[in-house]
Design a protein around this nucleic acid. Structure first.
Lengths: 161, 161
DNA sequence: TGAAACATTCAATACATACTTAACGTAGTG
DNA sequence: CACTACGTTAAGTATGTATTGAATGTTTCA
């Protein structure tokens, strides 16, 4: 496989975007490459196309799998490791954000019990923080099933499988 | 003003949390300190309580203001700069996430036009990515007014101002 | 058994960047 | 006008960490 300039640009943009979202650039590039791949890719192929060391791909691919962005897939008669985008990767990414938000609720509660009782302004602020992130977390959790709903076929006769 | 151990811990936890969310730890600590403050704080005071240089506070406070987390406030008869949490800071933080999500929609579209037409699997994947983040972005945008709705007083007779 | 093809691990390097110190600019104040 | 108080800027340092190259471990195959 070979990368044309446009996909090269795309991979690079994904790298930057994911880096800004808290991952490393190489991991972002790896994810971007898997996004445009038409089939699972081996470590060597990934390393060659990304122009990074095999070691880096190894660790980054592992991380991708751990956080649910990619999955390992075997190919019969081949002992190499192949990777592809995992089916729920986008939902997974949002789920990770969700747990970060839940953490903020806990933080706000810790803050409330940390400040002096007579510090009304801080208490009110932290209560709003708690309520806000509680609200956002709940709403995001409710969002996901709704998304899956939109993916279902509109006509039950067309149901596959 | 002085920090008791519990608020010290809180500030530190906020520092870690915000660092994990992509800011620097010091900025997170600064934000955490402002969260528990009972009044606007000067640069010197912030530097003393956080035990960092005034220069660091200066730049970090400026960043906080730029991204809508804090605001500068003046005190009559005092030429120092004072800072406090800005009213819409939490909503603002979510809004920043929202624009990152919108960026992902654009990325997916760029990907779609980058891959070969006969690469069905990648095209389908990128279309799902586009639709998904479009959905999430829209839902998050709709979330915010709903949140403000919950803040309104239930009884119109209690309306303040 | 040896060699080849893999993936992983580890120490060393390279790189990015946040922070500090010091210098600077500016505006009040005596 | 000097002096102080204050905030910002800029160069240098320090720190964390991602990547590399080499070594290691495993499996397959001749």
């Amino acid at each position: 496989m070979q990368l044309n300039p446009k996909t090269q640009d795309f991979v690079e943009r994904v790298g930057l975007a994911l880096e800004n979202l808290g991952t490393t650039r190489t991991l972002g590039r790896l994810f971007g490459l898997l996004l445009v791949a038409d089939q699972p890719m081996s470590l060597d192929e990934l390393a060659r196309l990304l122009q990074v060391s095999k070691a880096s791909v190894s660790t980054n691919a592992r991380v991708c799998v751990q956080i649910g962005l990619a999955q390992q897939v075997g190919i019969p008669g081949d002992r190499r490791d192949y990777y592809e985008i995992s089916p729920g990767s986008f939902e997974q990414a949002v789920a990770a954000r969700l747990s970060a938000i839940r953490e903020l609720v806990g933080l706000a509660e810790a803050g409330i019990s940390a400040v002096d009782e007579d510090n009304r302004v801080a208490t009110a602020r932290l209560e709003e923080m708690r309520d806000f992130y509680q609200f956002v977390g709940d709403e995001m959790a409710k969002m996901m099933p709704r998304w899956r709903e939109t993916r279902k076929p509109v006509n039950s006769r067309k149901r596959q499988r």
